[in-house]
Simulated assay, not measured.
Amino acid sequence: MVKKDAKPRLLRWVLLLQEFDLEISDKAGSENVVAGHLSKLTIEDHGIHDKSGHINEWLKDDRLMEVSSKTPWFADLANYIVSGFIPDEMEPRERRKLRHDAKRYFWNDPHLFRKCGDGMFRIWVSREEGLEIFDRVHNSAYGGHLATSITIAKILQGGFYWASMCKDINYLVK
């Protein structure tokens, strides 16, 4: 690329595409009917051009619009397991429960594992994550609408568990 071709938008694309192993080939206009059709479409100007008529290099999607940070549901448990830290604002009853629960869990970044009743360690997920897993196992094309016990067995075989798993799956399968 020569200096005259080095426009900001082009540079951004070049930097992005350097991460991938790809080959770009050119098709003649008569062979590339999709590009030919798209080039003939009329597009309304949505702030693409500035006052001088030049193309505005700023893209609306180039910025990060929102960052949301939500503390995971198991943060206190993971902090206690890893470092023994208990938040000062916890009540004595909550502290005892945290110490008791920590005996059944271990932390292997980024997952929290729990020793279940059958002696197997499974990834402990939130209810929301569990319902997404259920949806994939039960409702997806590769899952099949299986009965409650078979769906629970498949999720357990996959190595996942959440507190209200049996109750949730029984309700959703019915």
Results as ranks from 00 to 15, higher is better:
73 W>R: 13
120 M>K: 15
116 C>T: 14
60 K>W: 06
34 V>N: 05
4 K>T: 04
49 H>G: 02
17 L>S: 11
146 L>K: 10
145 H>A: 08
65 M>A: 06
5 D>L: 03
43 I>R: 04
4 K>C: 08
45 D>S: 01
97 K>M: 13
75 A>E: 11
95 R>G: 12
92 P>A: 14
164 S>D: 04
15 L>P: 07
115 K>R: 06
14 V>N: 04
7 K>M: 09
84 G>I: 07
149 S>T: 10
174 K>E: 02
86 I>Y: 02
65 M>D: 13
83 S>H: 14
61 D>R: 04
118 D>K: 13
104 R>V: 12
61 D>Y: 15
121 F>M: 11
129 E>G: 09
69 S>A: 11
13 W>P: 05
166 C>Q: 14
43 I>P: 00
8 P>S: 13
58 W>C: 03
75 A>T: 08
126 S>C: 07
114 R>L: 12
172 L>K: 04
27 K>D: 14
122 R>W: 14
165 M>T: 08
70 K>D: 12
119 G>M: 11
136 R>V: 13
35 A>D: 00
153 A>D: 09
41 L>T: 08
77 L>C: 03
168 D>T: 02
71 T>H: 06
26 D>F: 12
141 A>L: 11
72 P>Y: 13
147 A>V: 01
136 R>H: 15
162 W>Q: 05
124 W>N: 07
170 N>I: 00
38 L>I: 02
122 R>D: 11
21 D>N: 05
14 V>Q: 03
169 I>G: 01
122 R>Q: 10
52 S>W: 07
160 F>R: 02
115 K>D: 00
91 E>P: 05
30 S>Q: 06
15 L>K: 09
138 H>T: 08
8 P>H: 08
109 D>H: 11
139 N>K: 15
82 V>C: 05
49 H>P: 00
49 H>E: 01
104 R>F: 15
71 T>W: 05
63 R>Y: 05
10 L>T: 15
128 E>D: 07
84 G>V: 05
135 D>L: 02
158 G>Q: 03
24 I>D: 03
14 V>I: 07
9 R>W: 10
21 D>K: 12
78 A>N: 00
83 S>P: 05
124 W>Q: 04
74 F>P: 10
51 K>I: 03
33 V>M: 06
65 M>I: 10
165 M>P: 10
88 D>T: 09
38 L>Y: 08
124 W>T: 01
6 A>W: 05
143 G>F: 09
86 I>H: 12
146 L>E: 13
169 I>C: 00
136 R>T: 15
104 R>S: 15
121 F>Y: 09
159 G>C: 03
57 E>P: 01
133 I>L: 05
4 K>H: 01
23 E>S: 10
136 R>A: 15
41 L>R: 14
26 D>R: 12
92 P>C: 14
21 D>A: 08
28 A>H: 01
9 R>Q: 12
112 L>T: 08
144 G>V: 07
35 A>N: 04
161 Y>C: 02
123 I>C: 04
144 G>E: 06
174 K>T: 00
34 V>C: 05
92 P>T: 15
164 S>M: 02
19 E>A: 11
102 A>T: 11
140 S>A: 08
72 P>I: 15
143 G>V: 12
35 A>Y: 00
5 D>H: 02
72 P>T: 11
163 A>R: 07
